[in-house]
Design a protein around this nucleic acid. Structure first.
Lengths: 215, 215
DNA sequence: GCCTGTGAAGCTATTCACAGCT
DNA sequence: AGCTGTGAATAGCTTCACAGGC
């Protein structure tokens, strides 16, 4: 039997979302230089992608350009914002206020109005109950209730590998729907919780490997 | 005319190299627990991959296991090392000694005998000519000659987006064959230079987006 | 002529599924 | 029975190529 393909609300691929974020940043950066419009091949050049890919990506959010002038920069920025952003804004929690954690807090503070690192957590009494780069650091024992109380939806894990799973569990317990994990372990989370891993060590090792290749 | 497919030394996919790095780390961590052997589904569980994928990956480095006992942990660690590592070791340079840069230096110091961050660079006179987490920080003007003199093959860029391209050019000039780029810009480099981007902001934005999806 | 929008083709990565071994 | 090794199938991603518009 042949089943009819039903067009179910297409889940957007991660890659596309990532590129849309990048496009928006590049567009904002280029808003005050040159014209108010941009061609797919120009944006592709900025983003390090192909023109066809840019057009495809914009197709998935239903943004249209004109053959004559290309895409309106401001229009596209708004359209991506409408697609990606929660109009209420979103709150994130960061767990593990080491150097890496601090660098992320520091980078984000005040930068994006729509994405706020609302709370930090650490186990070290030296760090707890202090304000680090403008972000209050709570004891890690209070993680789940504070995350829940503050309506935080994204967790950032910058703790050593050994305790990462434990932190992930507490974040999920607190109601987090999405985790960015810098620890080099595969986290086990319930279905529906989105995990994105950033493994810096692996990336460096991989880069070192390809540095040895000829051609 | 139909051309005959010649089996040219297959270029290894980045993904596979990345997973091999991860497998090795997981294996080392598990060496002193349980048996000396491991099955593909066990390693897959640790790595968050499928058993079939583990077997494929090991196939590409030609490592064989036995149906009876699975794969020898130590044997596999050695085999991955033989495949990935330069026996002489490799030296890396890090440019941009902000919080992020420091966290990477700090993490790497002494950890991997085969991969050494041999030099750091910054433009800030406050940071130059000091030893940061055991790594000497040079003025950025001397980048290319020092990189060349020290035989450094990998560069890590942790500077603001605006100057990243300039730094990349100097790294290439110094003979670097591979770059890990934390700045949110598409670097232009000559053919043969490998670039791997880590865009933390994009990753966080993407995670925030998926936190809003149902199911 | 040079652009966008997009079906179709091409490519890459992953999984299936099973023969062969122990 | 349960594993590995692997050809074949599938799924996912990117590019091609061209109709349609200015």
């Amino acid at each position: 039997m042949i089943s009819t393909k039903i067009k179910v609300a297409t889940p957007i691929p991660t890659r596309v979302v990532g590129r849309l974020c990048l496009y928006r940043r590049l567009l904002i950066r280029s808003l005050h230089e040159g014209t108010a419009h941009i061609y797919s091949h120009e944006l592709a050049g900025l983003a390090g992608a192909s023109a066809a890919q840019v057009r495809r990506d914009l197709m998935t959010i239903g943004f249209e350009g004109s053959p004559k002038r290309g895409y309106s920069k401001q229009g596209l920025i708004d359209s991506i914002g409408h697609f990606l952003d929660d109009p209420q804004g979103q709150r994130l929690a960061l767990v593990g206020v080491g150097l890496l954690g601090r660098s992320i807090i520091n980078y984000f503070v005040g930068k994006r109005p729509n994405l706020t690192i609302a709370a930090a957590f650490d186990i070290d009494p030296q760090r707890v109950n202090r304000v680090i780069h403008g972000c209050h650091c709570h004891p890690v024992d209070e993680l789940a209730p504070i995350v829940r109380a503050q309506g935080i939806s994204v967790g950032i894990i910058t703790v050593p590998a050994g305790v990462a799973q434990n932190i992930a569990d507490r974040l999920v317990e607190g109601g987090v729907r999405s985790i960015v994990n810098f620890a080099p372990v595969a986290l086990r989370v319930p279905d529906g919780v989105y995990v994105q891993d950033i493994d810096i060590t692996t990336t460096l090792e991989t880069a070192a490997f390809f540095a040895r290749r000829q051609d």
